[in-house]
């Protein structure tokens, strides 16, 4: 594979952008729908949708993470029988994906040595992503169902995000090793 050099702006075709967003949207929805761990009391389950969102933010950048996170979780809520959460999930996971991707932007190196993700940035990205999701779900939940149930949702959301950050990081590292061309997918 041709080794890329940093700070060289690459041309990514519109078809590639559309395809990557569509596939990562589908993956986010599948991870949200297929793996459900019944912990969070109000949403009924925690899911691995956040693993897909963090992976997308780490690997494909903030724009892909924003759209895939928003659409993937929104569609999963519609398909999975929780349509009342779809609009909320759309906005919250979109903001979360963009924020995590924006923090990680530039931290994704281009050579094998550089691809080792900065631990500080990962920590900041994880904290930011978790704060955004927990806070916004709390506010949305409070508006829809009151402060009590919204508070009860917080532990589940924190667990889901911690699983998302750790899982997303493990997945990113595993895929960088198993399929190196993925480094060229960042835009």
């Amino acid at each position: 594979m041709e080794e890329r050099t940093p700070n060289v702006k690459r041309q990514i075709s519109p078809a590639f952008k559309v395809s990557s967003v569509a596939i990562l949207t589908a993956i986010t929805a599948v991870f949200t729908l297929v793996v459900r761990i019944p912990i969070a009391p109000t949403r009924g389950y925690i899911n691995l949708g956040d693993v897909a969102i963090y992976f997308t933010a780490f690997t494909l950048g903030p724009i892909t993470a924003m759209i895939a996170g928003a659409l993937g979780t929104g569609l999963a809520d519609i398909i999975g029988g929780y349509p009342q959460w779809s609009i909320i999930s759309f906005f919250i996971h979109g903001i979360q994906g963009f924020a995590v991707g924006a923090v990680m932007r530039g931290a994704i190196g281009l050579t094998e040595q550089q691809t080792k993700l900065s631990r500080v940035r990962i920590l900041i990205a994880g904290l930011l992503g978790t704060s955004i999701m927990v806070l916004l779900y709390y506010l949305a939940g409070a508006a829809m169902s009151g402060f009590g149930p919204a508070l009860a949702e917080i532990p589940g959301n924190i667990i889901q995000n911690v699983v998302g950050v750790v899982g997303g990081l493990l997945l990113t590292r595993a895929i960088y090793r198993a399929y190196p061309p993925v480094r060229d997918f960042y835009w």
């Binding site: 559309v18 967003v21 596939i23 949207t25 589908a26 929805a29 599948v30 759209i67 659409l71 569609l75």
Partner: peptide
């Protein structure tokens, strides 16, 4: 994007 994602969700599932 939405149409393609809807096409790929059952496939990837």
């Amino acid at each position: 994007v939405i149409t393609m994602a809807l096409r790929f969700i059952p496939y990837l599932g």
